[in-house]
Simulated assay, not measured.
Amino acid sequence: MTATFLMGCVLVTGTAAASPVKPAAVSAASLPDAAAASTVQAAAPADSHPAYQRSARRAQMTRKIAPLSPITPTTPITPATQLPSILAPHDGDAVAAAYAVRNDFGKSNLHKWSSVYGMDTSWDENDVTDTAHLQSSTVAFLDTLNAEARAAGVSFVITGGAERGYHAHGTYSHENGYKVDISDDGVYAGTTAYRVLLEALAPYKHHLSHEWNNNHFDITIYPADYTGSYSGANHGTEDDDE
C-alpha cells in the first residue's frame, strides 16, 4: 500500500515537470497602476509608443519643410519648363492691356527701402531710391505686381529705381526708368512670392536676373513697342547694374 502511494506521487510529479502549465494572460486591470502600465507598454508594438510616434511625426515634417528652406543655391536656377508664360510671345491685345494698367502701386503690398530712410521710405522721398521717374512700362508692371501680391497675401520691397549715379548706364537702364530692383528676402523658388513675381512679369517684355551678391532681383521692363531681343527669365548671377 505504501509502495503504491509513493509510486503514484512520483508519477504525478514527473508529469507536472514534463508539462508545465502556461501562466494565464495578465490583464492590466488586475495589476497595480505602475505594474499595469509597465505590462501594457512592454506588450505594445514599438511603433505605437508615443515617443516613437512623435519622432516619426518630426521626421515627416522635416521632409516636408526641407524643400522650402531658403538656402542660396551654389548654381543658377533654371526656369521650370512648366512655366511657358515666362517666355510666351508678347504681341497683340494682351500686351496692350498689360501696358495700359496705370494705378498708384505704392499704397498697398509694395514697399520702398532706401539707405537713408530705411524700410517703408516715403514715396515722396526719391533722392536715393527713385520711384517718381520710372517709365510707364515699369509702372505698369509694378501695378500688376502690387495687385497680384495683394490677392496672394504677400509683399515686395523695392530697393532700386530710377536714381542716377548708382547704376550702369545704357538705354534701358535704371537712370532711364526701365529697371527696378526688388529684394529677394523671402522670394525664392517654391514660395508664393516667387510665383507671384513670375506671373506678374509674364505679360511684359522683360529681363529678370537674380543678383545674389546684392540680395535683389534686377528687373528690366521694355516698352510695348520694343522689337529687340530679350531673354525673359534668366536666373543668372550676373551683376549687370551694380
Rank of each mutant, 00 (worst) to 15 (best):
M61H: 09
V180D: 02
Y222N: 09
L110W: 00
S155G: 04
Y230V: 06
S209K: 00
S231V: 07
T237I: 12
A233M: 09
D184R: 10
F5I: 13
S136T: 15
A18K: 08
E163G: 03
A59R: 11
N234G: 12
E148I: 06
T159G: 10
E125T: 09
G92A: 11
A17Y: 11
Q53H: 04
G118V: 01
D91H: 13
A98Y: 03
Y178T: 04
Y166G: 05
R164W: 07
D218Q: 10
T81V: 09
H206Y: 13
V21M: 05
S114M: 02
P45L: 08
A233N: 08
I158K: 06
G106E: 06
I65N: 01
R195T: 15
K22A: 09
A132Y: 02
A51M: 12
V180P: 00
A43R: 12
T144C: 01
A66Y: 09
Y188R: 11
A202T: 05
D104P: 03
G106Y: 06
R195D: 15
T78E: 07
T121K: 01
K179E: 12
W113V: 02
Y230A: 01
P23I: 08
N109S: 15
Y166L: 14
H210C: 07
D241L: 04
V10D: 05
T81W: 04
H49Q: 15
E163P: 01
V128S: 11
V12C: 01
T131Y: 01
D181T: 11
L87H: 15
T72Q: 13
T81C: 01
A98I: 03
Q60Y: 13
E148L: 13
N103Q: 09
H90A: 13
D218C: 14
A37I: 05
A98F: 06
S27G: 11
P20T: 08
F156C: 04
P89K: 11
N213L: 14
L142S: 09
A80L: 15
G14W: 01
P50N: 13
A35D: 09
D181G: 07
T129E: 03
Y230S: 07
D241Q: 12
A28K: 02
G118S: 03
P70V: 05
A147F: 04
D184W: 08
N234C: 07
T121M: 03
A80P: 10
A16C: 12
H235K: 06
H206V: 07
F105Q: 00
T75M: 08
L145D: 06
R54Y: 08
G232F: 04
Y226I: 10
G160M: 06
G177Q: 07
T171M: 14
H210K: 13
M61E: 12
A46G: 00
T131P: 03
S19N: 14
K179L: 15
N213F: 09
V116N: 12
T78F: 01
V40A: 04
P70I: 07
T192P: 00
A140R: 05
M119I: 07
Q53T: 13
H216E: 11
H210V: 06
V26W: 00
D130L: 00
S85H: 14
A202W: 03
A34W: 02
V116Y: 02
S55I: 04
Q135H: 03
L198R: 10
N146D: 15
M61K: 10
H235S: 05
T74E: 14
G236S: 15
A233L: 10
I71L: 15
A42I: 00
T227W: 06
R150S: 14
T192V: 15
H111Q: 10
G170S: 08
D130W: 02
G14K: 01
K112F: 00
L110F: 07
V10R: 12
H174K: 05
